[in-house]
Design a protein around this nucleic acid. Structure first.
Lengths: 207, 207, 207, 207
DNA sequence: GATGAATGAGACTTCATTCAT
DNA sequence: AATGAATGAAGTCTCATTCAT
């Protein structure tokens, strides 16, 4: 984490502008440079001093946000003891994340394309390591630290478990996405069922 | 299913052109009318005789393909007796689907946007019913017919079960998407783990 | 009038369609062939059997209407004795004309352009003679028959008188055009002032 | 007149390009953005930095020219003492105006349409006031200042007088328009007859 | 003779990117 | 270093006209 890249104020202004536009409901493939720099309060030309491309602005903004999200999630998680509570926390954070900028979801979306942006994101492996921690390492640390080494899972089994957990997390995310105006009671019920489901997933794997 | 909408040859040419472009890796928000009509072998203006705008071309093409996918999946499924084999079939079909146009995934993506296209798709409820069967009805028929009425699940439990299954299916899809050049052996192992996982999901729900 | 061109039913259908569209408020430079033939109830291709051009359809339609207008005005005028009453009649007919299709005004407008349509109209001198009577001959016959030969006006004076009268008629037309929702009382007052003005014009010329 | 809107060089380049195209005989509803910006010597996109759409370019160009025309006419008029001489001046200016871009006439034409452009012009009341003087105020100042208050005309009579004068001015304009290659002698004769006619109009009203 | 499906030239407009200041 | 005016390629959509049926 020591080799973490520091961003200049202008870069961060761009990142926050992109996020703010997401929060306002902008669609990722319709963001314009003018909107971004306008919101960031800097000149259009200036942005090109720091980024080679519009796609780079967006891609880095998404990563920046994802990193912030993960780091703060990790810290928060230290307060939770049981796996159940940790997962519940993750689900709650997903809720606010979805309700706000929904950046993670956009990241998944965008990274599945062969668009300029998609390629940019996929080609950002360097970036990930620049962050000091790859997202899945963070994830591993959070969820996996309890059992990762405790039980001997084959490589395949480990990979499957990770996928199964991520699937459920994403499933909950998509569900929220599609049901923005969910009643609190129902949301809570669903959250608990998903949480229990993920725990069962882990238990099944460890037996 | 008798009131199924018939499409004219030009419409189908457009649908297939869109699909073909997807297969070639085009991104949904970067398709151009010129590309589509060029690939379809018709004039640009002709497309506008059949569709009101570009978004409609793409949205209907995706639905058309999804319908074809579901119908053929349903037919194929009749040959499989056990739930396990049915799910295995679905997973295999997802594999070819992903390897080809990956239309279903794009549908999910696009429908989560606030883009013109996203709204177009979301406003297509009528279309779904025109197809005789809504996608989730098809799904229900395939997976759910065995237990849907047999055991009494609460509304929430039913909904969760559906989401859990879809999550795993999507999870497998995304995994494939991200690992296009997977070795057959590993793919098969993963497929079986996902299949077992889904079955366990069902069993857990029914206990 | 014996060499008057007869139009086929299809041609007349086109003429009436154009007029109907004008009545509905269509703008001359935004009429489409599809609209015209649709309203006329004939095929798009059929129209091109009778007219070489869209512009020809519109130009001939306007002339056709103008001719009808003038002929019927001429007939109606036979019932009026005094010059004053005749001019009053013309003004009243202008009122309904403006309220309806406003064809004459469009004719003036269009013929002042160098558009395809404008040139078409300007190049239609042959057409005018086909009609048996040029518009200004009709006009002459209506207004001028009383004094045209009675008093000796120089060529210039005759031309000026004609222009002065037409100017006032057009002036009244434009006034109505710009004040579509005029109160009847005011309209009547204006009509009478214009009528008196035109009569004074004639008197002045004859003194 | 001190709060007069200043236009940037690019805006003026557009205005002059539109005018130049009019001079070359272009039709108002067939001007293209490419033509305008080409003639103006600027990029197509640049025009959209200053105007929201094509109609605005044309509408403002016409107003700009009309304003220039009126202001310079007003100044010139200060040198003429009698009403007769003033009107003669107006007629002469109309001659050059017609011979050149014929902008005023196009303004009248365009503003009578229900086209986008027509509505744009009709919705430009604010613009007119920005100019410091509305066209009819200028007109009033020029022609009317002599008698406007001197004699008591009813509202209707005032309105009619204004219309009668404008009709004759327009009548002269249309006459010139239709007879572009008039011999100087005849033009002069006509001009004087029109001038006398307008003066008579005024005298008649004041009796 | 009648038709209307098919066409493609061409219109408007957007917006990522550059570069002179 | 910062800017934003200028640009033009590229995209969507319209519509007059043709031609096979």
């Amino acid at each position: 984490m020591s080799n973490r890249k520091e961003f200049s104020p202008k870069e961060i202004a761009i990142f926050q502008a992109v996020l703010e536009l997401f929060r306002e409901g902008a669609d990722i493939s319709h963001l314009t440079v003018a909107e971004i720099t306008g919101k960031a309060g800097i000149g259009k030309g200036t942005a090109y001093e720091y980024f080679s491309d519009k796609d780079e602005m967006i891609a880095k903004a998404i990563f920046y946000h994802a990193e912030q999200f993960c780091l703060s999630l990790y810290e928060q998680m230290l307060g939770e003891k049981s796996v159940y509570d940790r997962i519940l926390l993750v689900l709650k954070r997903i809720e606010t994340e979805i309700a706000e900028a929904n950046c993670t979801f956009r990241l998944i979306q965008a990274s599945c394309n062969k668009t300029g942006l998609g390629q940019k994101i996929q080609g950002m492996e360097e970036l990930k390591s620049v962050y000091g921690l790859k997202p899945d390492e963070i994830f591993d640390r959070i969820i996996g630290s309890d059992f990762g080494t405790a039980v001997s899972l084959s490589e395949y089994e480990q990979e499957y478990l990770m996928l199964a957990i991520i699937s459920k997390l994403c499933g909950y995310g998509i569900y929220l996405q599609k049901n923005m105006d969910l009643q609190p009671a129902k949301k809570e019920a669903m959250r608990e069922m998903f949480c229990a489901g993920i725990c069962r997933e882990i238990e099944d794997a460890l037996v």
